[in-house]
Every structure is written in C-alpha cells, then in structure tokens.
Amino acid sequence: MGDAESLFEKGKSLFAEGLFEDALSYFEQALLLDSKNADLWNKKGAALRSLGRYDEALECFNKSLEIDPSDRNAS
C-alpha cells in the first residue's frame, strides 16, 4: 500500500494529469492511513468534484475544514 505521504503525492500527480478516478483511489488509500489530514480530505473533495460527485465532494470539504478551520486552501 505505501505510506500516506507517497500515496498522496501519487494521487496529486494523477489529479494533475486529469485522471480523477485514479487520483481518488490514491487519496482514499492515504486517508485510511492518515484520516486527520485536512489536505487529503480537500484533494479527495476536489477529485470528487471533478467527477461530478458534488454531494460527496462537499462532505470532504467540510471534513477538511472541521480538521483545520483556518485552512486557506480548502475548496
């Protein structure tokens, strides 16, 4: 599986390439290892939003802000 940070980095790379479904998979794997990471929740939300899964994306963005209310990068 790998560590959360390497999974997150791979997910961000896939996201940048427009491979949102693949990126989402990596973000979900990383969250299993680090569920308190606001950036991970935010990126998962961005991937879901890109896939048109808006309700799920909103839940992720809210979770990100719940973990870090001062996060200026939260979508």
Rank of each mutant, 00 (worst) to 15 (best):
M1H: 09
M1F: 10
M1G: 12
G2D: 13
D3N: 14
D3Q: 11
A4M: 05
A4I: 07
A4L: 05
E5C: 09
E5M: 14
S6T: 15
L7F: 15
L7A: 07
L7I: 09
F8D: 11
F8C: 13
K10V: 13
G11P: 10
G11R: 03
K12S: 09
K12C: 07
S13D: 06
S13Q: 08
S13C: 04
L14N: 03
F15S: 07
F15H: 11
F15P: 02
A16T: 04
E17N: 09
F20L: 13
E21K: 10
D22Y: 07
D22V: 10
D22P: 02
A23I: 07
A23V: 06
L24E: 07
L24K: 06
S25Q: 14
S25G: 13
Y26A: 03
Y26K: 06
F27W: 01
F27T: 01
F27G: 01
E28N: 12
L31E: 05
L32I: 09
L33P: 05
D34E: 08
S35A: 11
S35W: 12
S35I: 02
K36V: 11
K36W: 14
D39T: 10
L40N: 06
L40E: 05
L40C: 05
N42H: 01
N42R: 03
K44D: 01
K44M: 04
G45H: 02
A46D: 13
A47R: 01
A47C: 08
A47Y: 00
A47N: 04
S50T: 11
L51F: 07
L51K: 04
L51P: 10
L51C: 07
G52D: 03
G52A: 03
R53A: 03
Y54I: 14
D55T: 14
D55M: 13
D55V: 14
E56Y: 13
E56P: 14
E56S: 15
A57Q: 00
A57C: 02
A57L: 00
L58C: 11
C60G: 03
C60I: 01
C60H: 05
C60R: 05
C60M: 02
N62P: 05
K63N: 09
K63T: 06
S64V: 00
S64R: 05
S64I: 00
L65S: 01
E66W: 14
E66K: 12
E66F: 15
E66V: 11
I67G: 08
D68T: 07
P69Q: 07
P69E: 10
P69H: 06
P69F: 05
S70H: 02
S70F: 04
D71H: 08
R72E: 08
R72K: 08
R72C: 04
A74E: 02
A74K: 05
